[in-house]
Simulated assay, not measured.
Amino acid sequence: MSFTKVVCLLVTCGGAFATLNFDNIEFDSDCMKAMCYADSECEQKGCSRDYNGRMGCGFFRMNIYQFKQCYEPGREIGEDSEDAWMRCSENYECSSKCIKMIASRFKLKCYGKSDCETIARIHDGGANGCRTGLTLRYWNTVQHYLQ
């Protein structure tokens, strides 16, 4: 299951044209694809605040606290956490792995929920995302994209 997104930009450079191609996204599950669409329409939209006022960036609107909870993947020695977070959030592979890692840490708190609901609600509400009704709005949006 894959979704190919190629964006081309033609720029004049001394009379010549340059074409920029962005990486294709390979979805490893329908759930991650639905979450990507629910969060950002699966586009690298920079950063913005969600309906709870949290700042999130990239494909999954990942916040810096989530990045730190998944042990700051790709952060180089001496690199600022915020720079590494921005780079990871704008990279589909890095951000999706981070989200799945956090969900696997807290999945026991979502007893009886499907894997997709577990990932989505922990992503939206943190460690106790499955234990609060505040994450149902996000889960309903993800379910909409699953159909």
Rank of each mutant, 00 (worst) to 15 (best):
F22L: 10
R105F: 06
T141D: 02
A120Q: 10
F27Y: 15
S81V: 08
G46M: 05
Y111K: 15
G112A: 11
R49M: 01
I99N: 13
T132Y: 10
F22Y: 14
G58T: 00
D115W: 03
S48M: 07
C47A: 07
S2R: 14
E76T: 12
N140A: 12
V6A: 06
G125W: 12
C13G: 06
G53R: 00
T118N: 06
M62K: 01
C98P: 06
D115E: 09
D115A: 08
A34S: 15
C130L: 04
D50G: 00
T19S: 13
V7K: 13
N128A: 15
G14Q: 11
G74K: 11
G46N: 05
G133S: 07
F3G: 11
D39S: 15
M101P: 02
F67R: 09
I77W: 05
D30A: 14
Y138W: 08
Y37Q: 03
G125T: 10
K45D: 02
M86Q: 11
G129W: 10
I102P: 08
E82R: 15
M62H: 02
E76K: 15
G46W: 02
F67S: 06
F60I: 00
M86I: 10
F3Y: 10
F22E: 13
T141A: 08
N91D: 09
T132D: 09
H123K: 09
Y145G: 02
E90T: 13
L146Q: 03
Y71W: 15
F106N: 07
G46Y: 03
L136D: 11
G129L: 06
Q143G: 06
G46Q: 04
T12R: 14
D28G: 13
